[in-house]
Design a protein around this nucleic acid. Structure first.
Length: 486
DNA sequence: ATGTGC
């Protein structure tokens, strides 16, 4: 048997790209890592594998805990981690969802080609930067009241539709149609709601961005046609989350759960995995608050997309409808959801935790929107400013292998602090413009340094593993034209 | 990720 030694963890190879930490000690199930050896070399350098093994101590975790090929260390639970935990007898863990609840991406199509945009990059990037609020702190497309926030938390994208920020078609091209009915503002603290009221429609900072891209390659022509993608087409990618509101929800419930469920906490190897037992009041409260933050993040991305349509209409002097600026799809990267999966031959209700992982449902799954039911759901995987991004579709093996999940990005190679020592923002910006015709505009030079292409893993390799395992199949590759960020 | 924190 092929093994891989990583510190005190020994991995056994199950087959190509599939590695397992066998069950031992307090582990309830084994753990699986989906990676090539070169990705495994990177994954094993931080605490990812230890955190993944720790997560198998969570009560009610089924089958195996998983790490996607882009996995890296996170708070308690790896970014790139997936765990299906029994929704009747198990638990729910905020650390296995992440601080940025429903951090995610959406891609909007246009009928413009690269030739239409070339020569207008500076004008476009300036106009987008001016119109789309970004950076730390307040300021959003919709400057509202706490009542507005409560409506957003309850109704998600339905609120955006009612308030003229969306068309019906947008809702139909969004995971869960942009709405979790369980979202309950009463379970979200006043502090969180106040933090949210002046950030509705704002990018934030860090790795969040808005990017105009061109489709540079198509790998599956038939699927690409169903997704409305073709070579040289201009698309827009929006990556952001639930801002201060989601962060506050996570903080609030971690503290509450640590206090109320210290018994469970003491059974776990890491207190950052704090979890509320299924059926407890806090499990229900956290789920409803998390769903509310999920709704907030969808509205956030919708308002940014709405503003982007206005900017394009202004710059290109045409209606956005005439430019066919339609939402391709919106996927969540940091969520938990009650889903039914087959485990040991039985239909089982699970809290599927996906933290830095994308849902990847295959063709014919009832939760895939009608427009894509025949081909599988679109999966959007942002890479870096120098390596581009990918569109995949849910693969036939995903339900069996990964609770219907795949990777979510390239994954960091180095910390933000390390990145700022290695790179200087203005140099990164100048190199991207001069060498790759990518136009970047950011609130802070430090953010550009933190997001330099060199701080990321090889997104091609991440996608290659997903494709080879049949959990998410390569459809198209896109490359940046211009990018705005905090 | 984050009014960059225990």
């Amino acid at each position: 048997m092929t093994t891989y030694e990583a510190g005190d963890v020994t991995l056994e190879q199950v087959r190509e790209f599939v590695w397992e930490i066998p069950k031992s000690g307090g582990m309830n199930v084994p753990a699986r890592i989906l990676a090539s050896e070169s990705l495994l070399d990177e994954i094993s350098e931080d605490k990812t594998l230890e955190q993944l093994r720790n997560s198998t101590y969570l009560p009610g975790v089924r089958k195996y805990a998983l790490c996607m090929p882009d996995g890296h260390q996170g708070y308690g639970f790896p970014v790139g981690g997936v765990a299906g935990i029994d929704a009747e007898n198990g638990c729910i863990s905020p650390g296995a969802v992440g601080y940025d609840i429903n951090c995610g991406v959406r891609m909007m199509r246009t009928n413009l080609t690269y030739d239409d945009v070339r020569g207008h990059e500076e004008e476009l990037v300036d106009a987008l930067f001016e119109a789309v609020p970004s950076g730390l702190g307040g300021g959003g497309v919709h400057e509202g009241t706490v009542d507005d926030v409560d409506a957003i938390l309850s109704r998600g994208m339905d609120w955006a539709l009612e308030n003229g920020y969306a068309v019906r078609d947008d809702l139909e091209h969004c995971e869960d149609e942009g709405y979790r009915p369980e979202g309950n503002p009463d379970k979200v603290s006043e502090k969180a709601r106040n933090r949210g009221k002046n950030q509705v429609g704002s990018l934030g900072s860090g790795n969040h961005f808005l990017e105009v891209q061109r489709v540079t390659d198509v790998f599956r022509e038939d699927v690409a046609a169903d997704f409305g993608l073709s070579e040289d087409q201009i698309v827009v990618l929006i990556h952001c989350g639930s801002r201060g509101l989601g962060h506050q929800v996570c903080t609030d419930y971690l503290r509450k759960i640590e206090q109320a469920h210290s018994g469970l906490l003491n059974q776990l190897p890491d207190r950052e995995l704090a979890a509320a037992p299924a059926g407890s009041q806090l499990a229900e409260d956290y789920y409803e608050a998390m769903c509310a933050a999920i709704n907030y993040a969808w509205v956030n991305r919708q308002l940014i997309m709405h503003r982007t349509r206005e900017v394009f209409a202004d710059v290109f002097d045409r209606d956005w409808e005439a430019m066919e600026m339609d939402l391709l799809y919106d996927v969540a990267h940091n969520i938990a959801k009650r889903e039914t999966h087959t485990v040991d031959g039985e239909e089982t209700d699970l809290f599927v935790h996906r933290k830095g992982a994308t849902r990847a449902f295959p063709a014919s799954h009832p939760e895939v929107p009608a427009a894509y039911r025949d081909v599988g759901q679109p999966i959007i995987i942002p890479g870096s400013m120098g390596a581009g991004s990918y569109v995949l579709r849910g693969g036939d093996r995903s339900l069996e292998e990964t609770f219907g999940s795949t990777a979510h990005g390239a994954g960091r190679l180095m910390s933000r602090t390390q990145a700022k020592n290695e790179y200087w923002g203005e140099d990164v910006r100048d190199d991207l413009r001069d060498q790759q015709q990518v136009y970047v505009k950011a609130q802070s030079g430090a953010t550009v340094a933190e997001e330099a292409p060199g701080v990321y893993k090889d997104v091609d390799e991440v996608v290659r593993v997903s494709d080879a395992l049949g959990i998410g199949d390569k459809v198209a590759w896109t490359f940046p034209v211009c990018n705005i960020k905090g």
